[in-house]
Design a protein around this nucleic acid. Structure first.
Lengths: 153, 153
DNA sequence: CTGCAATAATTGCGTAAGCAACTAATAAAT
DNA sequence: ATTTATTAGTTGCTTACGCAATTATTGCAG
């Protein structure tokens, strides 16, 4: 009841936060020809190479279609190369190119800039608590969504 | 440095949280013919009627274009009515219709369902802290974006 | 071995959001 | 009072994302 009266809404605040992050990342990544959506894929690939789009989608908690399109764009831009998996001709193995590997420094610095920006004025305890709470809330709600989805099948 | 190694990323967690919220809201609102984007506009209008699209955009921290399109959809669906402001013929005054007012109960219940869902397992202190930290992070980064924007003009 | 279910990827469709360019109306400046 | 700047709203373009349907391959059951 108080929500409506005082116009408090976590959903709105998360939305604002998310859109601001996209805005920030968009600006940071523009010089490299990639969008904010490609960033997490690039980041994961820097950590773990030669994986499938399906694996990427699962790890990044997004749809297979989103994964496909993001990887396609990274391929177009030259950061990534797709090789049909010889053990499973349905799947690709996604590898970073030279150019992709060279993004390591930039990815790292943009990522840490974002963190510093977001968490300015937070104590170390708050930083940790914040991360954990975001994850917890995300798990809470995505669990529910998952149940709804499988219920409709 | 640790971010890359451990694959920790607030950005990604916020993204997941946000997309899960959209998913949840989409399901909840589908029966009423509105999308998750319309929800905050409806919510604000239930609180404050007869305001302009510009005002809505500012209050909800989004672009004027987004406000225009969201209100247009609410009008199409019959929840809202636009009247040219007699004191300023450029602007509209956006009013809820009968049907719009009738959404009060649903808006309230969906909103509180979302909150309960997200904050399941949080203590009262954590709930409060979480809200404040989301807002703080959002303010931190949007302030920076704002500076970048005006710097490019 | 053949036929059928599950899986990886792709594509079309719908929704959402921001930026930039434009129109129309108002406010400010000379 | 006329020019100029600002403001409210709209529209086109681009990016992003999820769902559903489709294709191709793999794996399993008979």
């Amino acid at each position: 009841m108080d929500q409506l009266r005082t116009q408090e809404s976590i959903g709105r605040d998360v939305s604002h936060l998310f859109r601001s992050i996209r805005n920030f990342m968009g600006r940071q990544l523009e010089p490299y020809g990639i969008g904010d959506a490609q960033f997490p894929f690039l980041m994961l690939l820097l950590h773990e190479d030669g994986i499938s789009q399906e694996y990427l989608a699962t790890a990044l908690k997004c749809d297979r279609a989103t994964s496909a399109r993001s990887i396609a764009r990274l391929e177009d831009t030259g950061y990534v190369r797709r090789v049909v998996d010889p053990d499973d001709k349905r799947a690709y193995k996604v590898f970073l190119t030279e150019q992709g590997h060279d993004m390591g420094q930039i990815v790292w610095s943009v990522s840490s800039d974002l963190n510093n920006m977001l968490l300015e004025g937070f104590t170390d305890e708050e930083k940790l608590a914040f991360r954990n709470m975001i994850k917890k809330a995300g798990t809470n709600i995505s669990k529910w969504n998952q149940n709804r989805k499988t219920a409709n099948e």
